[in-house]
Design a protein around this nucleic acid. Structure first.
Lengths: 238, 238
DNA sequence: CGGTGCTTTGAGCATACTCAACATCAGTGG
DNA sequence: CCACTGATGTTGAGTATGCTCAAAGCACCG
């Protein structure tokens, strides 16, 4: 456990996730390190649950975590997939609104909420960064609302794949060969579709020559221009 | 214009909107007042547009404003309706992600972004409040994602009406008599439905004795228990 | 190998959409 | 005050997209 945390000291990535444009200064980083601990979670285990007291803030170090909400009768909607660098449970509410569940084996860094808030109070710069992170999350959520409310199955899947492709590009990986850590069921629960519709739509995109689906849980983009057209999320101007 | 702004000084509501639990201290409030100006907007006029430079932060003083995004081919999804007290355009991004358009005649208070950010820098307390506001907006957006991805037309409409009812209750108004400042079309664009489906579903709820629809743009709840069942947003616990 | 879980494919169906007509309301000017 | 007009809302018929239920194909893992 301690060894793992020592590893982290050498990694400058902590709290510099996707949404943060400026790195934290050493002092804040050190304070956060001091209150942190590591939690390893096997695939399919719940990190925290909708309705639980919100005792910790988390950061994903390794693996993929899905955030979802359930209706009373058990229907499920995934709000997003959190990749390494992303912060979870930043809602200021005392109880979690979503459930967080590991999609793959995952490693998280957890910060006790009370101490975390102390650090915020002592370092206003941190409050601004958190503000920026949550504002970014809000933008993503709203784009997803457009997708869920107004896009066809094909458009949803195309948008999703281009999202993952862009994430690959950002991380210096091949943007045309996408790893899918999540199941077809997860993709459906994220896109507001059933597993069958996801599967059928993937097949159709393969038949159209837009995708290659030869490898397990991997998708290759063969015709990016076509996929972009299908996603229909071109910018609009008044 | 100045008269209007003087009115505001007597109103303690500025920057104490729904999402903020603690009021600002007088110093911050005064600084914000000094950089603010009032903007009156007739119904159906755009306040700012998706893609525009994000030059101001706004607060709704009077009326109702809708926030929406458009696809390239013109389909529209409303992200939310902003009532008095709500803050708009808090995204840190340099360009607006959504369009804001007045649903009714509206009055807004606008803060130039550059000066607004100066005030944030000088008053860390404000950064925390903004963080809380955006975190609350994120919770609302995620609940709406569940609605858009997984609920039936009836469930969507029931949830929407109960939302408005609760807003009424919070403001000390009759929770069983709901004013609808927005058109059926707006409701459809918010719930990811067509105008016809909204109208039909309303009619069905009237036929079932759940609603009264006698008055123009007003809905009376006759059977709240039934409406709550239909909304299906009972809390879940693991 | 034989299981278990994941994925694909098929057939039939339901919900919500499209297109179209009509009703109602608010505002305007005679 | 009433008739006109354009916008908003309701209702109907037919359709399409995506869902449900069911079965078969694969891949991973003991």
């Amino acid at each position: 456990m301690l060894d793992i945390r020592k590893d982290r000291v050498t990694s400058p990535e902590i709290f510099q996730g996707v949404a943060v444009d400026r790195p934290l200064d050493g002092e804040v980083s050190h304070r956060l390190f001091c209150i942190s601990s590591i939690r390893s979670v096997p695939a399919k285990e719940v990190v925290y649950c909708q309705g639980d007291a919100s005792d910790y803030v988390y950061e994903v170090i390794e693996g993929v975590v899905k955030l979802y909400m359930l209706t009373a009768d058990g229907r499920l909607q995934i709000m997003g997939f959190a990749f390494p660098g992303q912060i979870l449970a930043l809602d200021t509410d005392s109880h979690h609104l979503t459930t967080a569940e590991a999609v793959t084996q995952a490693k998280l860094c957890q910060y006790p909420r009370a101490k975390f808030e102390q650090v915020i109070d002592e370092h206003p710069q941190l409050a601004r960064q958190l503000f920026a992170i949550v504002a970014q999350d809000l933008s993503v959520a709203r784009s997803q609302m457009l997708l869920l409310g107004r896009k066809s199955a094909t458009e949803r899947l195309a948008s999703f794949l281009l999202d993952l492709s862009e994430r690959n590009a950002t991380r210096g990986e091949n943007p045309d060969l996408i790893a899918l850590p999540m199941s077809r069921g997860d993709i459906g629960d994220y896109l507001g579709l059933t597993i069958e519709t996801v599967s059928r739509t993937m097949t159709r995109l393969r038949q159209l020559g837009v995708l290659d689906l030869n490898q397990h849980r991997r998708v290759a983009i063969r015709d990016r221009a076509r996929l972009c057209e299908m996603a229909e999320d071109g910018e609009f101007s008044c």
